[in-house]
Design a protein around this nucleic acid. Structure first.
Length: 92
DNA sequence: GAGCTGACATGTT
DNA sequence: CAACATGCCAGCT
């Protein structure tokens, strides 16, 4: 473990965001701001979206992260697909 | 090294 | 009530 990941940016913030989003249970959703707050900054909701956008990992249910207004928001695979996924999980 | 971009939020007009 | 403008953070060019 004395080797740093020089390829991945994996900063403290992105790591935290990733962990939080991964922990979101099925059928449950969180807002970008909420995730940002848990990540450490209640004003980094913009960065959260950027991180999730660059993160194509299927292990991270980024589709469970929605806007504070209740709108689904955007998605790297298509906002429509995101809506379908949320509906499929039980979130209406 | 500096500047621009963006999956947002909040406030004001 | 709705639309416009500004602010903020981290990542990418």
């Amino acid at each position: 473990m004395g080797n740093i990941d020089r390829h991945s940016k994996t900063t403290n913030f992105s790591q935290k965001v990733m962990a939080i989003v991964t922990r979101i249970p099925e059928g449950q959703i969180m807002t970008y701001k909420q995730v940002a707050i848990l990540a450490g900054s209640h004003k980094a909701y913009r960065a959260v979206g950027n991180i999730l956008k660059k993160n194509y990992d299927r292990k991270i249910p980024c589709h469970r992260v929605v806007r504070s207004d209740g709108n689904i928001g955007q998605y790297n695979r298509g906002a429509i697909k995101k809506k379908e996924l949320l509906k499929s999980e039980g979130y209406l």
